[in-house]
Design a protein around this nucleic acid. Structure first.
Lengths: 134, 134
DNA sequence: CAGTATCCGCGCGGATACTG
DNA sequence: CAGTATCCGCGCGGATACTG
């Protein structure tokens, strides 16, 4: 609706990437794989993220139907975010990317902060991933 | 070597994305899944790509060890590019992303040009993908 | 606490032109 | 034909501050 008539991509991979691209979107989705998260939870898990940017990325994911913002008025801690069914459909792709990242980060001279995310690794292969930079 | 000491990412997904991100990198890898390609092959398959940018993206993929530039002096058509073993290790992730993109592009109002790429879809599920925008 | 508005730097990607 | 150099626009992401 707010989207241009039709975006043209080079290949289907780009279509998927267009949804998960954004500095903090993978981390957001990765966190949400472990269950509902509130704004402050993301801030705590991602100390580097700027307030405005986190808000933007959440809204974009919401607009794409990948996550859902739940108002939960009167609840303990205000609104939170959860994956939609559509968002959960990204799992195989996110898992495949994460598995590759875990397998090859050393070779690339890369580190990562969020080793695993709730049940995202439920399809095996994902034993005890590091919680802190390796 | 030309890489900063150690890049820090939020999650392992970002590590993988750091390698395949770039306007034309997914399309390049997607094409190379079908076998060796020359510079002009990419230009033909990706009419939009700028000369300089294609060159840059190829060199970055080469630097990351994902593709290999073969000189082939005296051969029919000059140098070409192939996936390395390391590059082929990205297959499951690229396939998962492509599968998602193919399944959901309509819902996102998205189209793509390169429907399938050689044998990249060899793990089933990938019957007769569109060759042109759908 | 969550969200938005404003401002801005920087890097990616594109246009153009030159080289081997 | 493949590759590099130069120049540049634009959009992403960050800093800051204000609002409900």
């Amino acid at each position: 609706m707010a989207r241009p008539r039709s975006k043209l991509f080079a290949c289907p991979v780009d279509v998927a990437l267009s949804v998960i691209q954004g500095k903090w979107k993978p981390a957001i989705l990765w966190s949400l794989a472990g269950g509902a998260r509130r704004f402050r939870d993301f801030q705590a898990a991602l100390p580097q993220v700027a307030h405005k940017v986190l808000s933007e990325q959440l809204r974009q994911l919401e607009r794409d139907g990948v996550i859902l913002r739940r108002e939960r008025e009167g609840a303990d801690g205000g609104p939170d975010y959860v994956l939609t069914d559509f968002g959960r459909s990204l799992r195989p792709a996110l898992n495949a990317l994460a598995r590759w990242g875990k397998a090859h980060h050393r070779k690339l001279g890369a580190q990562y902060v969020l080793g695993n995310a709730g049940d995202l690794g439920r399809d095996g292969t994902d034993g005890g991933a590091a919680k802190l930079p390796v």
